[in-house]
C-alpha cells in the first residue's frame, strides 16, 4: 500500500503575524509545518509500522527541503517535492489539482493530510483533493488501522462522539490527531536524514484552480469583551487574583 502524506508549511499562529496593506506579510511570517499535517504524518508512519506500507511525503517546493527531510527522519520512505510555481498564499482549492495529479503519479492508495490548515478561508485541502480524485473522504480522523483489506478510520465528531468507519481504497483521509503525539526527531537523526535522504522532484501538468472567492482584507479581530488586565508581574497578579477569588467566594470561606 502506498500512503501519500501531503505536508504544508503555514504561518505559525502562535507567533505574531504581521499585516501589510491588508494582507499577510509572508516575508515576515514565521512558517511551520501545519500541525494537523504533523499528526497526519505520524498516523501514516504508525499505519506503516503496524500493517506495512510505503509512506511517501509530498510537499510543494516552496515548503523547503527541511520539511521533507524531517519526514524521512520520522519514518517516511520517500520524500517528493512537487515542482510548480505556486504563490505562498494559494488556497487549498487552487492547489488541490496539483496534489491530486501528484497522488495519482505516485500510485497512492491512501492520501493523508491534515483536516485543516489555519488559513483555509475557502475550504480545506483534503476534501478538495478527494473531489479532484473522485475518491471518498474521511475527515476528522483520529486513527487509521490498515491491517484489514478495507482500512478502518476512527472519525471524531465532537462532543466526545466518534465512529469506526471502513473505507474501500483508494481514499483520502483528513487527520485531526494521530493516536499518539508526533514522534521526536533527534538532531543526529535529522542530520543523518539531511545527508542521506534523496528528495525526488515531481512535475505535474495540472494548473492551479481558480480562486473561488476574493479576499478583501485581513485585520485583527474586533474586540467583543471588555477585559480587565491585571498586573504583568506574577507576584502582583497572583495577589490580585486571590482577591478576586475572595470577592467571588471561591476561596476564603465565602464559597457557595
Amino acid at each position: 500500500m502506498n500512503i501519500v502524506v501531503i505536508l504544508q508549511t503555514v504561518p505559525d499562529s502562535a507567533e505574531e503575524l504581521t499585516l501589510a496593506d491588508g494582507v499577510l506579510d509572508w516575508d515576515e511570517a514565521p512558517l511551520r509545518l501545519n500541525e494537523f499535517d504533523d499528526h497526519a504524518l505520524e498516523e501514516a508512519v504508525l499505519a506503516k509500522e503496524e500493517a506495512g506500507a510505503t509512506v511517501i511525503a509530498l510537499a510543494l517546493e516552496s515548503a523547503g527541503d527541511r520539511v521533507l527531510q524531517t519526514a524521512v527522519a520520522r519514518g517516511a520512505d520517500r520524500a517528493v517535492k512537487l515542482i510548480k510555481e505556486v504563490p505562498l498564499d494559494a488556497s487549498a482549492r487552487m492547489v488541490a489539482p496539483l496534489m491530486a495529479e501528484a497522488a495519482r503519479k505516485l500510485g497512492a492508495d491512501l492520501v493523508v493530510t491534515g483536516v485543516q490548515a489555519p488559513g483555509d478561508i475557502f475550504g480545506q485541502l483534503a476534501p478538495f483533493t478527494a473531489a479532484e480524485l473522485a475518491w471518498p473522504l474521511l475527515g476528522g480522523a483520529v486513527g487509521i488501522d490498515c491491517s484489514a483489506d478495507a482500512p478502518i478510520v476512527a472519525q471524531e465528531f465532537g462532543g466526545g462522539r466518534s465512529a469506526q468507519i471502513s473505507v474501500t481504497l483508494p481514499a483520502v483521509v483528513g487527520v485531526q490527531a494521530a493516536r499518539r503525539p508526533p514522534r521526536y526527531v533527534s538532531g543526529s537523526k535529522l542530520r543523518q536524514a539531511v545527508q542521506s535522504a534523496s528528495i525526488e522532484k515531481l512535475d505535474v501538468a495540472a494548473e492551479l484552480a481558480d480562486e473561488p472567492g476574493k479576499l478583501v482584507t485581513l485585520h485583527s479581530p474586533h474586540k467583543t469583551t471588555a477585559i480587565s488586565f491585571l498586573d504583568d508581574d506574577p507576584v502582583t497578579a497572583v495577589d490580585q487574583i486571590v482577591e478576586i477569588f475572595r470577592q467571588r467566594g471561591i476561596v476564603g470561606g465565602g464559597r457557595g
Binding site: 504561518p11 499562529s13 502562535a14 503575524l17 499585516l19 499577510l24 489555519p118 488559513g119 478561508i121 475557502f122 472567492g213 476574493k214 479576499l215 478583501v216 482584507t217 485581513l218 485585520h219 485583527s220 479581530p221 474586533h222
Partner: peptide, 9 residues
C-alpha cells in the same frame, strides 16, 4: 489563524 486574524471575503 487560531482567531488571531479575521478575513473579509
Amino acid at each position: 489563524y487560531g482567531g488571531k486574524l479575521e478575513a473579509d471575503v
